[in-house]
Design a protein around this nucleic acid. Sequence first.
RNA 1: GGUCCGUUCGUCUAGGGGUUAGGACACGUCCCUUUCACGGAUGAAACACGGGUUCGAUUCCCGUACGGACUACCA
Length: 501
Amino acid sequence: MPNSVRVRFAPSPTGPLHIGGVRTALYNFLLARKLGGTFILRIEDTDQARFVPGAEDYILESLAWLGISPDEGIGIGGPHEPYRQSERKEIYKSYAQKLIESGKAYYAFDTSEELDAMRALFESKGSAFQYNAVTRVKLRNSLALPKKEVEQLLANNTPYVIRLKVPAKGEIRFQDVIRDWVHVHTSSIDDKVLMKSDGMPTYHLANVVDDHIMQISHVIRGEEWLPSAPLHILLYQAFGWTPPQFAHLPLLLKPEGNGKLSKRDADLGGFPVFPLEWKDPQTGAISKGFKQEGYLPEATVNFLAFLGWNPGTEQELFSLKDLIEAFSLERINKAGAKFDVKKAQWFNQQYLKQHGAKELAATYLPSLEAEKGEAYVHLFLDRITFPQDLLSMVEDFLAIPDSYDADVLASKWNSETKRALELLLEILPSCTSWHADDIKQTIQQRLETAGIKMGKVMQLFRVALSGKGAGPDLMISLELWGKDQVLARLRQALDKFPTLS
RNA sequence: GGUCCGUUCGUCUAGGGGUUAGGACACGUCCCUUUCACGGAUGAAACACGGGUUCGAUUCCCGUACGGACUACCA
């Protein structure tokens, strides 16, 4: 099956997985599932300096939480092990060597300091330094130095890097699935480092070699990679390989203003940009996670999927299964999408309501007996965004009021309503059945007999019992509080309400 | 600075040479409700600008503006 779809998500373990990365993983996963292909998880840990312990597990856990499960790679295994690039060091080395032998790449001995100095020099002259066809002849590399000297340097174990010999002239073109044809002149590409002096490959080499070896059919990645895509094409050409299809995804933008969504925006806006909570092992700083903030995985997936893609229909709610069904690369947008917390919350509400009261009660109100818990869920489900709101609502509901809504008091508290509340205090104990419907009937009848309109006193009654001018169904509230509690609260209110002159 | 990419309501977006430019979030109003929320209805709200091409351009082309990404021995 040489034409089968094989896609990969290839994050580097440098910290918590950014939500934009999660979306990239999602799209890769969706395409694979849609087309019956394989979704591979590969870890790009070729930067030893930026390695962060725990980051790889974090990636695994995040994907698992959202149901984006790889078919092959880290944590699963597969025909192309290992899937951690640091463990594939020798492979890249041999491929780099091939490029040296075929004259497509060369050794460069310039130190970082020398290059920094060179950049500073060019900058002072108002131009930008590029390691390319015109400058490389004057630099310390195997193309410019006499052969003997190069051999000497290598024999002395002088640190070196391997650079790609980018042709001076030519045009690179490739057809991006999302952006169509992209053209770039080789003159604007510099001789990128392929192998670093520590023996590790750079992203560019490792990614091309692995994608080829692992027979990746579609490279779906963020737009930030678009500028280096021509370089990758050049690499495929240097190896004589057929490049995969490229699809460069639009960026996730910050909610206010412009620019890439960053952790800073999250902290400022009080919303998460990471799937799971993350504690920085160095500083101990905690970054919020969607999960811990109360976002459901289905909501997170649905919200994320719609940032840059849409089905072309008016349906908004999509399960992972629905997404697989509807997904196509062609319907991905070109322009960046701003992250809208409000929309994310709306999705969460929608999915929250889809969960059964029994399940929500058991999960989020575990300290309550099942029947009671479910009753509370029914009472509050329409007014919460996050499941943990349930608990705070219940706590609030159960708390005896210590203050009363001043506005309602000012407009509704008078001798007539006072009489009504006192009457209620008399009526309530006579309720033989303490169920919402029966209580309502009793109250209705007795107030009517006394010539008092329900509408005139009910809000005040609510304030008397809860302290608040608004809230869930009052009769069901009464039932849940219980008769004794209601009477106690009513007495307290009558006692604490301001004296009428 | 250079290279590349982008631009439809405030936001996510549909659409695409002739449409009352559609939906969703948020917002306003109304209905439901003793209240709030939910729900329902409804309203306000957009084709960045300038040139072409065309009978006709928001749609195609070219510029301009604006925005963004990239520009490391990071990914």
